[in-house]
Amino acid sequence: MSSGPRVLVIDDEIQIRRFLRISLEANHYEVYEVGNGLEGISRAAQLRPDLIILDMGLPDIDGLEVLRRLREWTTTPTIILSVRDADEDKVAALDSGADDYLTKPFSLEELMARMRVAQRHAQPGPQPTVFTCGNVSIDLAHRQVTKNGEQVRLTPTEYALLRQLVQHAGRVLTHKQILKEVWGPEYMEETHYLRVYFAQLRQKLEDDPSLPGLILTEPGVGYRLATD
């Protein structure tokens, strides 16, 4: 049991903590839990966990504030839990360095997927250069994109966008993060660029551009590249 990755759960609701403990331990994680933000920060410093699950609504200090203080000294992958109608909070947390988010109520399946992705990205060492999802394959080293084995021609902008998603495959990227990386910091508000170029990308890559299975939209937040 004690050999699994260590997860720190910072949430004030005892039922959520219990459910997370049971489910995560069943999936071979070592679970630690605290009920408020300040304790969460000090436990994180003591434990040096492999992953943190942070609730945004804490009784003592704001979850966003906890995240910022954590990010002052650690890059430990952190997944935030939030409620609907708080898109701005989610985006702020993601822009402040959270790795991913989940909206309550969420399924265990979703949580596990997010945790796997976050841990994978936290892994030191070179990331794989070839990404495959379904019938689409992207080779970053050779700047080649194929669908059903046939080469797809992308414009430089389309490719730059796709590369961003691939580099963070499975993780959500906010509009600002993508715009900043691809176009530059002065274009961070131009979300319509993303609407236009992602529509083009979907035309070229998706089986059914109206029901995308590869490039997923996270409403009000950003985009995510599906992993199998």
Binding site: D85, H192, A199, L211, P212, P219, G220
Partner: peptide
């Protein structure tokens, strides 16, 4: 929640240029 937001007049539109196909896709998903 939606109803109370609508009725209280607290609803604030965050209008952006959107791709209708994308919205349909997300809803269907």
């Amino acid at each position: 929640l939606d109803m109370s937001r609508l009725e209280s007049g607290r609803l604030q539109l965050k209008r952006e240029w959107c791709d209708v196909r994308e919205i349909v896709g997300v809803a269907a998903h």
